[in-house]
């Protein structure tokens, strides 16, 4: 049995592991990937000590720092269940089962899904959640961007340069992203903004070929728009589904106290998966440090 298992290796999980390694704890880190959302950030200009660094570069520095220490790391592994048992915590992944005395959940967030028919079938077959990654594949094609916040507007601004036509489908009556981006989009000839509009279905054959939209007012007039690409940019959701017994807020974020303790006192949580406000790399890293220090103190008291 481990003393500690850390779930996730973004800024929170990595910082927690650095602190745990320096305390010479007997611990394991389980994560799908290394770097988390940091690797997906463009420019980072608010991480103290770096006036400017790219997201992937900062993630690589985090990884180098973590790997200076010898400890057990399970990459490409997904936690499916984490629950309290009599003498500790049991964790089930897609590959194995583990037991630990205490846990730190630092599993971060993922792209929010639309939950409409066609979304699962055509994921990566025209549907993408990463405009930065897959945008260039849609050069010369008609595409739809779903959302109205900064990430959606950012996707539109990337795509309007290369796509034939961009439809921006926004559920709300007005866009919510920064005014400066809205102004740029307003000046673009190949962008159509459809506010108060809801996506009903995504159609395709092998790949996406159309979407069906309806007014969000509840009117039943269905409009079919031919597109070869659908970019879903409707925010993020916490990766907290596997932690069933823990108290969460309405967004599904795990509730923590000032010591990063969840509603189960041997389970700690840190970073974007928690209800701590300000989803920032530096905040997540700090929360990871706090959680690790508190986890160590908790363990010392149990002995």
């Amino acid at each position: 049995m481990y003393d500690l298992i850390i779930v996730g290796a973004g800024p929170a999980g990595i910082t927690a592991s650095v602190y745990a390694a320096r305390k010479k704890m007997n611990f394991l880190v389980i994560s799908n990937d290394i770097g988390g959302q940091t690797a997906w950030s463009g420019k980072v200009e608010n991480y103290t000590g770096y006036q400017f660094i790219s997201g992937p570069d900062l993630a690589a520095k985090f990884e180098d720092h973590m790997k200076k220490y010898a400890f057990n790391l399970k990459e490409n592994e997904t936690v499916l269940e984490l629950k309290k048992i009599d003498n500790g915590i049991s964790i089930k992944t897609n590959k194995a089962k583990y037991e630990t005395k205490i846990a730190i959940i630092a599993s971060g967030t993922r792209s929010r899904e639309l939950n409409v028919p066609g979304e699962k079938e055509f994921k990566n077959r025209g549907i993408t959640y990463c405009a930065t990654c897959d945008g260039p594949l849609f050069a010369g094609k008609d595409v739809a961007v779903i959302g109205g916040g900064n990430s959606a507007l950012d996707a539109v601004l990337q795509l309007e340069k290369i796509a034939k036509h961009v439809y921006l489908i926004n559920l709300a009556p007005a866009l919510t992203g920064d005014a400066i981006m809205q102004a740029k989009i307003a000046g673009s000839k190949n962008v159509t903004i459809l506010n108060s509009t809801e996506v009903k279905t995504i159609h395709g054959n092998k790949m996406v070929n159309a979407i069906e939209v309806v007014p969000s007012s509840g009117e039943k007039t269905v409009r079919k728009i031919d597109v070869q690409g659908v970019f879903i940019e409707i925010g993020l959701m916490p990766n907290s589904d596997f932690a069933e017994g823990l108290e969460k807020n309405k967004k599904g974020e795990i509730k923590v106290n000032a010591r990063n303790q969840t509603s189960v006192d041997s389970i700690f949580a840190a970073g974007d998966v928690t209800d701590v406000p300000s989803k920032q790399i530096i905040v997540a890293a700090g929360e990871g440090a706090k959680a690790s220090i508190e986890a160590f103190k908790y363990l010392s008291r149990q002995k």
Partner: peptide, 13 residues
């Protein structure tokens, strides 16, 4: 790859 995709950068590295 595309130049801006983080997984591409990681894969090449």
């Amino acid at each position: 790859t595309t130049p801006t995709c983080p997984y591409c950068i990681n894969a090449k590295k």
